[in-house]
Simulated assay, not measured.
Amino acid sequence: MQETGLLFGSFNPIHIGHLALANYLLEYTSLDEIQFIVSPQNPFKEQSDLADGQHRLQMVRMAISREKRFTASDIEFDMPLPSYTSKTLELLKKANPDQQFTLIIGSDNLLVFPRWHEANKILEEFHILVYPRPGFPAEDAEKDILNKVTLVDAPLLDISSTLIRKAFFENKKLPYLVTHDVYDYINKNKLYQK
């Protein structure tokens, strides 16, 4: 059975940290492929500086184009807002009954996992891979949750989309934090700029 990792995010914008993590997980876990699920709206995040969903989806497609085991998904674009991971997982499972889906989350999300919509249902029905995020020790998560997830010792790349958006807004040039085509796309479409 094919095992598909699901990496959810605003990808506002997608950066080399996302790509390096996905690449590492493909090589060092049982995943056969990874789907980047572009979320139109994260229930825990402000929407103010969120680029249009189509722009973010296009940037993800550009960034992952060289790896055939990566795909971009806009499944949440037609779902009610805000986007709840549990609903998306349910939809994916229904549409692909022969596929095994594994949720990929950072340790920052693991620590707040009990607050997620239908958290227990997700834990019962899906395998969860947890990668480290600086300042969020996975060991601090609730013990019963820790026993149901797999911690992955992926390399720490402390790059954030917030940093990249701020750099564009301040007219700083940081072209190596995103792929070259994404950098050009942001400039061409004047995203995150004054």
Rank of each mutant, 00 (worst) to 15 (best):
P114S: 11
P80V: 05
S83W: 00
Y131G: 06
T29C: 05
L157K: 06
H180S: 14
G9W: 13
K94R: 14
F11M: 04
L151S: 09
K121I: 05
A141P: 12
V178L: 08
F70I: 04
V130K: 10
P132F: 07
A20T: 14
N96M: 01
Q99V: 15
P97E: 03
L21G: 10
K166G: 00
T162S: 15
M79N: 11
M79F: 08
T162C: 04
N147I: 00
K194E: 08
K173Y: 08
P82D: 05
N120D: 15
K45W: 08
L92W: 11
S160H: 05
A20Q: 13
G106T: 09
P175K: 12
N171Y: 10
T29F: 09
L25Y: 08
M1D: 05
L7W: 07
H55K: 12
L146K: 08
E76K: 06
G106K: 07
K93V: 00
I128V: 13
K121N: 13
A95S: 15
F113K: 06
K45L: 08
N96G: 02
E170L: 15
Y185Q: 09
E76T: 09
E3G: 00
D98R: 11
H55I: 02
I122M: 12
A138D: 04
T4Y: 01
V182G: 02
A22D: 02
D98A: 07
I64H: 05
H55Q: 12
L129N: 05
D49N: 15
N187S: 00
A167C: 10
R61I: 07
T179E: 06
E142M: 09
P137F: 13
A154E: 06
F11I: 04
M62R: 11
I16K: 14
R61F: 06
L191D: 07
I105E: 09
K148A: 11
V38S: 05
D158G: 11
F36C: 02
I75L: 14
D74G: 15
K94F: 07
D32H: 14
A95E: 15
D153G: 02
T4K: 13
I16V: 15
F8L: 03
K190P: 00
Y176V: 09
G9Y: 12
I75G: 07
I105C: 06
S161R: 09
F44L: 13
N189Q: 14
L25D: 14
A20C: 07
T179Q: 04
L163P: 00
S83R: 02
D49I: 06
P114F: 04
A63E: 09
K194L: 10
M1G: 15
E124C: 01
D181C: 04
I159H: 03
R66Q: 14
V130C: 10
K190L: 06
D153S: 14
V149E: 09
E67M: 04
S86N: 07
Y84N: 04
P97V: 03
Q41H: 14
K172T: 01
D74E: 13
A141Q: 09
A167E: 04
D74C: 05
D98V: 00
Q47H: 11
N12F: 11
G106N: 11
D153I: 00
D108G: 11
P114E: 14
